[in-house]
């Protein structure tokens, strides 16, 4: 006897599935395993992973580190925001706060940096324009991501986590200069 969704099945309903159900189950199960396997695979073979170096940090300490970083490598000012040009391979500190990203970063194409992200007030969202790279910025946590800018150009950092009424004002800037080292720019 067939049942509908509103009919009580009588007796044992644990009966063999139809052949087509078994086929679909098998295909789906294999697909679900592929969905899983792609993630570890990309850690080995892919260039984009959200792993990072992660630590808890006191917001005041983080702010002090950013201040020190600006003092060390400052090369100018734009719109009242310091422009900082750290050497290739160094640790780079970016601070999110209502409603600004500090400082402006000047990086070199093809060089790797450890980009630290944190906030001293609310959650913020790191969104790199125009490449659409997104990370969550959480107060009290330091997210150190090894980034390699792959193309020279002018980039923006848009805040994409709601942080109060001035959220839309929170736009920062990254300048990526062409590689000075001929081999470094070769991707």
């Amino acid at each position: 006897m067939y049942t509908t969704g509103v009919t009580s099945p009588q007796g044992v309903w644990w009966k063999p599935a139809h052949k087509s159900e078994k086929i679909w189950f098998t295909i789906s199960f294999i697909w679900c395993l592929i969905l899983f396997a792609m993630m570890p695979f990309w850690h080995f073979k892919g260039g984009q992973n959200p792993s990072g170096i992660r630590a808890k940090v006191n917001p005041a300490d983080y702010q002090a580190r950013v201040t020190q970083f600006i003092q060390d490598y400052r090369v100018g000012t734009e719109n009242g925001i310091p422009v900082v040009a750290p050497p290739a391979g160094s640790d780079v500190y970016l601070l999110g706060q209502m409603w600004a990203w500090t400082p402006i970063l000047q990086l070199e194409e093809g060089a790797e940096y450890t980009l630290h992200l944190s906030s001293i007030d609310l959650n913020h969202g790191f969104n790199l324009y125009p490449f659409n790279v997104n990370f969550q910025v959480v107060p009290g946590y330091d997210y150190g991501l090894r980034v390699t800018p792959t193309e020279a150009g002018d980039y923006r950092i848009v805040c994409n986590e709601f942080c109060g009424v001035g959220h839309h004002l929170m736009v920062g800037k990254v300048i990526v200069t062409e590689s000075t080292d001929a081999s470094g720019g070769d991707r």
């Binding site: 969202g125 324009y129 848009v158 994409n160 986590e161 736009v171």
Partner: peptide, 23 residues
């Protein structure tokens, strides 16, 4: 969203922000 347009955002012309974001 695949252009990077943020969710929960009042003004994607970013009027008054220090830098423009020309989508």
């Amino acid at each position: 969203g695949s252009f990077g347009i943020p969710r929960r955002h009042w003004d994607i012309t970013f009027a008054g922000a220090p830098f423009d974001v020309p989508y």
